[in-house]
Nucleic acid binder design. Structure first.
Length: 278
DNA sequence: AGGGGTACCTGCGGGC
DNA sequence: TGCCCGCAGGTACCCC
């Protein structure tokens, strides 16, 4: 579900609201949400009375650093939501999979329609060394990601540029919505092979990534349908209305008025303007 | 090594 | 009306 802008929004909000609270208890409603690390049998005991020191993001992963050298990793996958609020507000959610009871009568709930979301609790160092994090490519918004490094990563892969953008080992945090939006912004056809892109196109993509992701973060992420992303208060993001191409097949391109097309690339839906993304 | 196919899940909308 | 199919923001794992 959430891609970089949505996860970034959640992380910023948690740092404002949940930082410095203490975990009082943990509760599982769907056992399989716990993937590795400290097992369910020791989970509650390990996490109790630990303080939330800081919340971080790596790609689409949420990392909650706790006192005692522990970190809780959360990946929301397609339909996961993290909701923070008063203890009383949880009961109605039919997709409740896990929650943390916090001090000051607060609660952090993980709700997930499709049960794909996962959590891992372990020592901070062990979490950092998980291959899911170790194999992530650079952060697209990192100031030290130079255009040259970016270009060399693009040129070494013989896969379609849309697939390249969604490959978490090449660059982290971009999923299907933003891959489509970025390529529209850069005026690059999603079928083009990464290895065959000219420097001029690579530069456009590099700039489009920053422009699109920053604007999406500013708008607190994208929500296009009911089951999609919510922030930690349950509010939708506002980037959905501002999107240019994703799920806009049949509409006029806002740049050139041609009709937007929908197709499939590597089993994922792809949207592009046949006129200005040649 | 790396690509393709499939599995993990539930719900919804469209076509028949 | 109702059923069946395809599809949905993601990744992990298997096989070749």
């Amino acid at each position: 579900m959430p891609e970089l802008p949505e996860v970034e929004t959640i992380v910023r909000q948690l740092n404002k609201k949940a930082k410095n609270l203490t975990v009082k208890d943990a509760c599982f409603y769907w056992r399989k949400i716990l993937k590795k690390g400290i097992p369910a049998s020791r989970f509650s005991k390990s996490i109790k009375e630990k303080k939330i020191l800081k919340v971080r993001r790596k790609g689409k992963n949420i990392l909650i650093d706790l006192s005692g050298g522990l970190t809780l990793l959360i990946h929301l996958k397609l339909t996961g939501r993290l909701l923070f609020g008063e203890k009383s507000f949880i009961e109605k959610d039919p997709y409740l999979r896990f929650h943390l009871e916090l001090s000051k009568n607060k609660i952090l709930v993980l709700s997930d329609l499709r049960k794909f979301a996962k959590i891992i609790l372990d020592k901070t160092e062990k979490i950092e060394n998980l291959k899911e994090l170790k194999e992530l490519g650079p952060e697209p918004l990192a100031s030290d990601l130079s255009i040259d490094r970016f270009a060399s990563l693009i040129n070494k892969k013989k896969k379609k540029i849309k697939d390249w953008l969604m490959d978490q080992t090449m660059i982290s945090g971009i999923g299907n919505i933003y891959a489509n939006e970025i390529l529209w912004e850069a005026k690059v056809n999603p079928f083009k092979l990464a290895s065959a892109l000219e420097k001029r196109e690579i530069t456009k993509i590099y700039q489009a990534i920053k422009k699109v992701l920053l604007l999406a973060i500013k708008n607190k992420g994208a929500t296009i349908s009911d089951e999609m992303y919510r922030d930690i208060s349950g509010n939708p993001g506002e980037y959905g209305e501002k999107r240019k191409i994703y799920q806009r097949q049949g509409e006029k391109c806002q740049r050139c008025k041609a009709i937007i097309k929908k197709t499939v690339i590597s089993a994922r839906s792809a949207f592009y303007c046949p006129k200005c993304q040649k």
